[in-house]
């Protein structure tokens, strides 16, 4: 199995506070990796170091090395804009732009200079289909994305990311603001997407991690406690802390 992203002794400090205490892990291509752990354990922080979204926060210091396909993403010559095109991100709250569904999906492409109407139309259809929201939106493509339900908005946001054709998709608790039916649609969709994309998913929902991920990483207090095959993690964890967490003794 090919490694797509690798972190090597990654530390992250918000000012003086150490939020990641030396994380070393490898993410496998074309798999779903779930990052779990209680609030404040550093899982979202780690996710946001992978496309350098933490750069936006003042007073953040990151040490250690993170590579994407062998390339150091924190190297000075790294183009952040290019990085974020290869590593797309979906957020906890659906955040479509207040424009039409169509415009949302082609936003990245248009800004990349693609003007050909046929090419854009095609990208809209493929991306919305891949995000399993084509049937619900094909008749309202030119209406505002804000008029859709939360679950549909989230899938349009995923389509918006897919249209840019990233290698990796980061999802930060993508279903925590959605109802169970919308959530299950997104889970099914992620399972079909993993043959073309590498998916890293932060989730609070252990059942979700168990249902769809190939590997699970359990974080606690800024440390990576256990990182292993999902089935093994949930049936036979090797650390006491993992077992306490999945059996609901804390967290």
């Amino acid at each position: 199995m090919a490694t797509i992203i690798e972190t090597n002794d990654t530390h992250l400090y918000y000012g003086k506070k150490e939020a990641l205490k030396g994380i070393s892990m490898a993410f496998t291509a074309n798999e779903i990796t779930a990052l779990i752990g209680p609030s404040g354990c550093g899982k979202s922080t780690l996710l946001r170091t992978l496309n350098r979204m933490n750069d936006l926060i003042p007073n953040v210091t990151i040490t250690g090395k993170i590579t994407l396909n062998g390339q150091d993403i924190y190297a000075p010559e790294m183009d952040i804009v290019e990085l974020r095109k290869e590593v797309g991100m979906v957020f906890q709250q659906p955040n479509p732009f207040p424009f039409s569904v169509y415009d949302n999906v082609v936003y990245g492409l248009r800004l990349a200079g693609i003007r050909d109407k046929r090419q854009l139309d095609e990208a809209v259809e493929t991306s919305l289909k891949a995000a399993s929201v084509w049937e619900e939106t094909k008749d309202v493509l030119h209406q505002s994305a804000l008029a859709l339900s939360g679950g549909q908005q989230q899938r349009v946001c995923i389509a918006r990311v897919l249209a840019v054709k990233p290698d990796v998709i980061l999802l930060d608790e993508p279903t925590s603001a959605l109802d169970p039916i919308s959530s299950s649609k997104i889970e099914t969709m992620l399972l079909t997407l993993k043959k073309d994309y590498s998916i890293i998913l932060v989730t609070h929902n252990m059942q979700q991690a168990g249902r769809i991920s190939d590997r699970t990483a359990f974080f606690l207090d800024g440390r990576l406690v256990e990182y292993t095959n999902t089935t093994k993690f949930f049936t036979n964890p090797s650390k006491q802390e993992s077992e306490d967490y999945i059996s609901g003794r804390f967290g």
Binding site: N51, M53, L56, V81, E82, R84, K85, G88, M89, F91, Q93, N95, P96, F97, Y107, G108, L111, A112, C157, R160, V161, V164
Partner: peptide, 21 residues
């Protein structure tokens, strides 16, 4: 909302594009 800025940047827009577009 700040989430709109994040959405733009995470989509690979530059800061200037995020602001103006």
């Amino acid at each position: 909302q700040g989430s709109q800025r994040e959405a733009g940047l995470a989509l690979g827009l530059s800061r200037f594009e995020t602001v103006t577009r």
